[in-house]
Write a protein that binds this DNA or RNA. Structure first.
Lengths: 242, 242
DNA sequence: TTTTAACTCCCCAGAAATAGCGAGGGCAGA
DNA sequence: TCTGCCCTCGCTATTTCTGGGGAGTTAAAA
C-alpha cells in the first residue's frame, strides 16, 4: 500500500472489460485494476432508488455492510456532490462542513477506505446514475499527481465499466420501453414546477379533466403510485427537466 | 472530403478545449477538430426534454434551420436511439424502418450531412442530454475503420466538450441549495418513491402530523409550492436519490 | 447560558387529487 | 381497412393533502 504505480495499459484493460461475461468478471477486472494502479481501492457503485444498490469493488465487506446499514447513502457527500456535477470530483473539493459528513469520513478512513479519493459520476439512460471511485492513503500532493496523470484513462475505464454493467445488469431492462407522449410530458413538467392540476390545465388550454387523463396515463406508463411518484420518476429518468 | 485523417493529438485537443472561454471558442474548437479528423461534420447538440435545443458544429445553417423548422427532433432516430443507449452509436445500427425516418435520412444526405455517422450520447446533471456526432461520406468499411480507430478519443473529447458547454451555459443556476434535515430527506424520499403521507409516517414510525411538519418544512426550504414541486426540486438538486 | 434548530405530538375545515363510469375525432402503421 | 395510440371533453363520490392554529423535549451551536 502507499505505492502508486504507473498507469497501466489502457487498451488491454478495455479489451479485458469488453470481454466480460458476468458480474464475476467485472469484480475480477476491478480487482486487477486496483492492483495495477497500486491504490487502496477501486469501486463501481450503481446508485439507485429505494435503498437497493448494486456495485462491485475492493472495499471490505464490513464497510459495505456498514455503509448500507447506517444509511450512509443519504449522508455521503461524494454521492451528493457527484450527483450535481459532470466532471470527476476529488473528494477534497466536496462539502465536508456538516458534522455527519465528517463523522462519515472518519468512519470510512477507519475502515481502510483511504483519506484521498476521486469519483467519476456516470449517467446512463433512464436516469441511471453510478460512481466510479478510486481511493487511497496518500498526501495531497501525491494524490494530485496521481489524479492529474490518470484522469482521462479513468474516465474511459469508468465509461466502459458502466457500459458492461448496463449490459449485464439483469433487472433493469424492462423499465425502459415506455416513454411519454408530448402532451403527457408537458403536463408532468407543469406539475413538476409546482402548478396545480387546474393551473396546468389552464396553461395548456385544455380542460382539467383532460389534463387529469394525461397525468393518469403518465402515471400508468411510469408505474407510479401517485402523481408525486410519477413526477419523481419522470425527473429521474430525464423525461422532465425542472 | 472523403479523406479520413489520422487521429489528432488528444492531449493538445483537450487542453485547447479546457482553455475555451466562450461559445465562440467551442465553435472554433469543433471546426478545428473536424478539419483534423478530415470528416464532413462534427456537431455538439444539447437536447432538452422540453424541446429547446442548443448546439454548435459544422452543419450548414440551412440544414440546422430545416431541422428545427421540420421538427426533426421528434423523428430523428439518432436522438431516439441515443436516448436509450449508453455507448456510442453507429447510425447504421439504428432503427430506420419507419417511413418518416428514411425520408429524414435522405433529406439529411441531400443537405451534405453525410451517409455515415457516429453519435455519442452524453448525460449531465439535472437530466441534461447531449449528443456529440461525427458524420461523413464514406463506405461502410472505411467508416467502420475510422470509428474503431477513434472511438475512445472521441468519447473523451465529447466528455470534455460537454464539460465546457455546461460551464459556459448561461442558464446555469448557482442555487445555494439550503439542505434538508435528515428526517426531512427521509420524508421526501419516501414520498418520492410513491408512499402516501400515512404510509411514510408509518414507515418512519412517527405520527402523520409529524411527517406533515417535515414535508412542510422541506417545502418551505426548497421554495416549493406544493409537495410534488418540493419532491421535484429535491430530486433535481440531488438531495433525494430515487 | 441562551438561543437555535431538529424532532415529536394533536384538531379542524377547506382545497385538491384519485377512482370509477363514459364518449368521440384524428392520424399513422400493419 | 383496421388497430392502436394520442388528444379532447363530462360527471360523481371518496380519499388525501394543505394551511391555520398550539406545545413540549432534546441536542447542538453561539
Amino acid at each position: 500500500m502507499g505505492y502508486l504505480a504507473q498507469a497501466p495499459q489502457l487498451d488491454g484493460l478495455i479489451e479485458h472489460l469488453e470481454s466480460a461475461e458476468g458480474l464475476g468478471d467485472l469484480q475480477a477486472a476491478i480487482t486487477g485494476l486496483r492492483d495495477q494502479y497500486g491504490v487502496n481501492h477501486i469501486v463501481y457503485h450503481w446508485v439507485n432508488a429505494a435503498g437497493d444498490q448494486y456495485g462491485c469493488g475492493t472495499y471490505d465487506q464490513v464497510w459495505v455492510d456498514r455503509y448500507l446499514e447506517k444509511g450512509y447513502l443519504r449522508i455521503d457527500p461524494v454521492i451528493q456532490g457527484c450527483y450535481q456535477r459532470f466532471h470527476p470530483v476529488d473528494w477534497k473539493r466536496l462539502d465536508w462542513s456538516s458534522k455527519a459528513a465528517r463523522a462519515f469520513l472518519q468512519d470510512a478512513i477507519d475502515h481502510g477506505v483511504g483519506n484521498q479519493g476521486f469519483s467519476i459520476p456516470i449517467r446512463g439512460p433512464n436516469g441511471q446514475f453510478a460512481l466510479f471511485t478510486v481511493s487511497h492513503n496518500a498526501t495531497d500532493e501525491e494524490w494530485e499527481d496521481f489524479a492529474e496523470a490518470n484522469r482521462r484513462d479513468l474516465i474511459l475505464v469508468a465509461h466502459y465499466f458502466n457500459q458492461k454493467a448496463l449490459e449485464l445488469e439483469p433487472g433493469r431492462k424492462p423499465e425502459t420501453a415506455q416513454s411519454l407522449s408530448p402532451r403527457e410530458i408537458e403536463a408532468m413538467t407543469l406539475l413538476a414546477i409546482g402548478y396545480s392540476r387546474a393551473q396546468a390545465a389552464e396553461t395548456l388550454a385544455i380542460s382539467e379533466h383532460t389534463l387529469r387523463v394525461y397525468v393518469e396515463s403518465a402515471r400508468f406508463k411510469l408505474g407510479a403510485l401517485n402523481t408525486t411518484h410519477a413526477v419523481a420518476r419522470a425527473i429521474s429518468r430525464g423525461l422532465v427537466v425542472v
